[in-house]
């Protein structure tokens, strides 16, 4: 179904440089702290997995990375650009930044009134600066890559969850992002669809795409990701090489979570 003769994306292969750097990120809702001082580095080309109990702040942290959530305080550099100054002053051109950071959501969030094919072409022509023909070529290519070329003219409500999520990944990729954020991409899927989506993500990882993934899939964390961040109660409890953390977790809460 998926081959590697051509990379899924034109993601930069230069590893080692820092794609995202976060220092001292704090965020609270209505006085209740959700993130209590996060330091995180995402190297370009690396796959970072965020794990932890629900309510531990993983998704909020992820959503802060493309500023869908505005932190209370933070020192944030994304793709070489300082993006956050204060909760009242963020980067003026957020749309341009967000086009470089794709995001895939738990609930897929395809545009329900458009076909799979149009879901992929529409953002490209509307805000990606591409012509209809360029966008269409890219859409066919990406649909083929995620194994859904035959479903191009289906509407979201005619597709399974797994198919929708793969279209959502293709739609995000169509904007040629340099970083992709995944917010529990398989949590709403059955085991078989989960496998299909993880396969696409794995291939993506092999092309050198920088990825930050919130997931409960221990298998993905172990087999695909380089770096594992374990979050608990708004703090990073433990982070390190993914296999090392999974095999011999140092933190008590990490151990309890992984043993469960």
């Amino acid at each position: 179904m998926m081959t590697l003769d051509q990379p899924l994306t034109s993601a930069p292969a230069n590893t080692g440089k820092t794609a995202i750097s976060v220092r001292g990120l704090e965020k609270s809702y209505h006085g209740r702290p959700v993130l209590k001082g996060i330091d995180l580095d995402v190297r370009a080309g690396s796959i970072v997995t965020l794990m932890g109990k629900s309510g531990g702040g993983k998704s909020t942290l992820l959503r802060c990375l493309n500023l869908l959530e505005v932190p209370d305080t933070a020192d944030m550099t994304v793709l070489g650009e300082q993006v956050f100054f204060s909760s009242r002053q963020v980067l003026h051109d957020l749309p341009a930044l967000r086009r470089k950071i794709g995001m895939v959501f738990q609930k897929f969030l395809l545009f329900p009134h458009l076909t799979a094919f149009e879901n992929i072409t529409y953002p490209q022509t509307k805000v990606g600066g591409r012509s209809q023909a360029e966008a269409e070529e890219r859409a066919v290519q990406l649909l083929d890559r995620v194994g859904l070329r035959h479903r191009g003219l289906a509407y979201p409500d005619q597709m399974s969850g797994g198919e929708q999520q793969r279209v959502a990944i293709a739609r995000a990729l169509a904007m040629n992002p340099q970083v992709l954020l995944f917010d529990e991409p398989t949590s709403a899927l059955d085991p078989e669809s989960t496998k299909d989506v993880l396969a696409v993500m794995k291939e993506l990882a092999e092309t050198g795409m920088t990825m930050v993934v919130v997931t409960h899939e221990v298998g993905f964390a172990r087999d695909v990701s380089d770096w594992l961040v374990f979050m608990d109660q708004g703090l990073i409890a433990e982070q390190g090489d993914a296999r090392q953390v999974l095999e011999s977790p140092k933190n008590e809460r990490t151990r309890a979570f992984l043993a469960a």
Partner: peptide
């Protein structure tokens, strides 16, 4: 739908 649009760069 608003969130995903913002995330896509709208």
């Amino acid at each position: 739908q608003t969130e995903v649009s913002l995330a896509l760069g709208f």
